[in-house]
Structures are given as C-alpha cells and as structure tokens.
Design a binder for these strands. Structure first.
Lengths: 238, 238
DNA sequence: CGCAACATTGAGAGCCATCAAGCAAAGTGG
DNA sequence: CCACTTTGCTTGATGGCTCTCAATGTTGCG
C-alpha cells in the first residue's frame, strides 16, 4: 500500500474515485472534478509518516485515498491531543492562519491526494459549488469538534470510549453495520490522547465496556458491539 | 441596558457601529454594510435569557451589540458544556444542519443584532467579501475550539483556568492591557462548565493561582494578572 | 436587618495517573 | 524451528487530583 499503483491509468482512477466519494465533490460536474484532478498529486506514505506539520506553511490540502490517518496537536512538553481519525475521502487542511494548526500522520500505509493551496483555492473561487462544499465540510468539522469537546469535558473514561466507538461505528458503511464490527487501526495510546486519558485508563475502559456486556474484542484492534443502543446512550453528547 | 435606545437614530447607530467593529464587515463597502443594516433587527434582552436554543430551527444569525453572553451544549441528564463566552461584535450562528447545535444565553443585560437566515445568506451570496469573512470567522472559531479541546484534554485544573484567563486577556483592547485587569462577567459555575470542572474545583484553581502569585482578585468578578508570562506558559496549547 | 445568591474552604470518597509487572503477538537471527 | 527481542495490551497497587457533600463567608438587595 505504501507504493502507488504502477500504471498511470490505475493511479488516475484511484484519484478520481477518491474525489467522487468525498464530500468535496458532492454535486460537482464531471468537468469540474476533472479540473481538481488536474492539479492533484498522488503520494504514497508508509505507516507513521508525517503528512503535514503543525506550524509549517499551509501550502496544500489533502484527501486520503487509502489507509488510516490521525490529526494531532502537540505542545512543547510532550503533551499531545489527538484531534481526529481520518480515512479515505476525508478532507484535511483547514487553517485560520498561514500555518497549519495541527499535524497529520499516517497510522497505516496510505495514499493521499495532495492539492497545492494556490491552485485549489483558485478553483474554489471559480467553482461556487466547490466553495460551498468546503464551507459545508468546515461546518461538519466544527460540529464534530463540539461533540468531542462535550465528551472530553463532561464524560468519564468508559463513556468517552463509548463516544469514540459510536463515532467510528457511524462511519461504517450501512451495508456492513449489521455485523456491528469496528476495526481500530490506531493504538491504545492514540485513543487515549484522543479522549484525554492515559493508555492504561483507556485499556481499563475497554475492559469496563467488555465486563458490562456492551462489546467484545476478538483482538485488540477489533471491537464487536453487543448492545449498540446502550453504547449510544453512553455516547450521547446532547 | 436591557431596553433599547429610545431614538431611532441611536438604535441605528448602535447597529451600524457593532457591524463595523465586527470581523463580519471587514473590508466591506459602506453600501454593503448598509444592506446588512437594512435586514438587521435589534433585540434587548435581560440577563439570563435565551438568544437561541439547541435543536431549534437555525433561522437567524446574531451579533451581540452590548453585554456578555455564553454558548452552551446541554445533554438530557443535566450535564452542560460551555462552548464560548461572547461579547460585542462576536459572530453567533454557525450550524452544519438546519438546527442549532447549541444554545446561547445572556450573562448580563444585552442588546443583540438579529439577521434572519434567509436574507443574511442571500446577501452572502451577493457579496463575495461577506461570504469570505464568514468563512474566515468559521476558521477562527475552529482554531479556538481546537485550543479549547487541547486545554480540557491535557491540562489540570489551575492550568485550564490559566488558559481561560489568557484567552480573555487576549480580547482586552491593547490600550487597556497595560493594567492587566480582566473582568469576569460569568459565574464560577459557568467557568467550571467551560473548563470541564466543578465550580468548587474552579474556585480552588483561582486560589491556587492567587497563592502562586500569578493573579490577585479584588473581588470575584475581577482578576489582575501579576505575572502574565507565567500565566501564558501555563496556558500554552501548542 | 435578614434573606438570597454566589464564592470559598474543608473533609472524605472516587476516579484517573503513575509506576510496575505480566502477557500476547510479531519480527529477527542463529 | 526456536530462543530472543520488540512492541503493544492488560492488569495490579498506590498516590494524587478532582468530585461530592457540607459548612462558612461575602455581597447585594428588598
């Protein structure tokens, strides 16, 4: 996965398919998608490599095409807050200043689409539908962060974990939701830093949900929901 | 303050001045500001009254003209997360769906400008500069919430309070920053719900900063910074 | 003055962080 | 193929920070 498809046509198809499933291109004409495609760069990254870096010039936006990624904010003293877990089709690149406010790195080998800022925002000016989609994604991101804030500010450890599991489950394609199976590409320490907990407390939160009969874990990276409704109640954020 | 200015010209001036100091109208032509002014409604509200309500139809955006306000998210069980403290000129009204994701209420008697959604977003379509400003404010809000998330997820009580005090101090007009005096229009319970703490822990955090020589409090609603630099280090969010 | 609302402080309990040990899975090299 | 190492997860013990419950102090107002 770390290497790109060999043939030019395969690479083009991967880029195009990724754009088409993303919210970015909702309602766009084929020719408009083609203009985005024309400025897209494809990058293959191995696991645990930086996509973009906090404080660096915000000179591009990204769209993961495969693999799993996370967004994080680090302080000088080693503290780290994980802000989001990303996957195929997620938009990455909001910034209020000229610099990125966070870093993003791959959890697993990934391919990402890169759009240089200059060309991307020029296109956004030219295509009102694209600009509208960016605004809508921005609002969705804000909504997600507000949920996140509520969970961290108000919930205890096992309920915070329920919140994350519920978020992840909402992203599982509906066809596969019947099995109630969730893959966790991230490690316990990443989950902990997402929820404002240590990795030990995170692990104990898994045990708690297991003991309470809400989930089972075949292995540490796979969770099966036994009682989605109880989990949803725990995860409730208003 | 709860009652509006008596004369029509005074009301008009208040609305216009509020628009002009807000980020919303940065760089707009006078005639464009006038078009916003034409659809603005002025509302006088006493302390602790709802401006807008979580779950209700997002049929307007608001701009406080005087007084102090807060934004909050409540869950069914009485848990509450305060999301922001607002004042004159702050934009209020982002929503990713048709409904508001939060409530907003006045802390003190306030006057707010209300812009019906229909007219407001039509104007945004007609005035690219306005639409751009909305996008920029959206990015600023996102940046603030990410800081907030880091503080709540990673910091302990007294450092979270330092974070809030630092945020509030950044909003003091530069001319007055020399005195290092901050007014706190909110109660301890509001600060607690903003920081993910109880009001008692919040009060102890004030005592801690006082004992450590970082602040003094003439009374409970006024804080004087004795060591802004130490406070900034405590408040650091990456 | 007395009351109401808010803030502060104290005591004790509970939740989470820290330190530490044990376990499981995957990779390495002989 | 199997010791050995590495990495990550789980579990236990202990201490500390925050929450809860309670009492006291302060301010403002009728």
């Amino acid at each position: 996965m770390t290497s790109l498809p060999a043939s030019d046509s395969e690479r083009k198809r991967l880029a195009r398919d990724t754009l088409l499933i993303s919210d970015l291109c909702r309602g766009l004409e084929d020719e408009d998608v083609a203009r985005l495609l024309a400025i897209a760069q494809l990058r293959g990254l191995e696991a645990d490599s930086l996509i973009l870096s906090q404080g660096r010039e915000a000179d591009a936006v990204y769209l993961p095409a495969s693999g799993h990624q996370l967004v994080e904010r680090s302080a000088g003293n080693g503290q780290r807050q994980v802000l989001a877990f990303l996957q195929r089709g997620d938009y990455l690149g909001f910034s209020s200043s000229q610099q990125f406010l966070y870093s993003a790195r791959t959890l697993t080998p990934s391919i990402v689409l890169r759009f240089p800022a200059r060309g991307f925002y020029e296109l956004a000016e030219a295509l009102p539908a694209l600009k509208g989609n960016i605004g809508q994604i921005s609002n969705q991101v804000l909504a997600r962060v507000l949920d996140h804030l509520f969970a961290i500010g108000q919930k205890r450890a096992h309920a915070r974990l329920a919140f994350l599991l519920w978020q992840l489950w909402q992203r599982v394609p509906e066809k596969q939701q019947a099995s109630a199976l969730i893959e966790l590409p991230m490690r316990r320490v990443d989950i902990g830093d997402y929820l404002g907990l240590t990795l030990e407390t995170t692990s104990r939160a898994f045990s708690r949900l297991r003991d309470d009969g809400l989930i089972t874990t075949a292995h540490s990276q796979q969770v099966q929901l036994l009682d989605p409704d109880a989990l949803r109640r725990l995860a409730e954020v208003g």
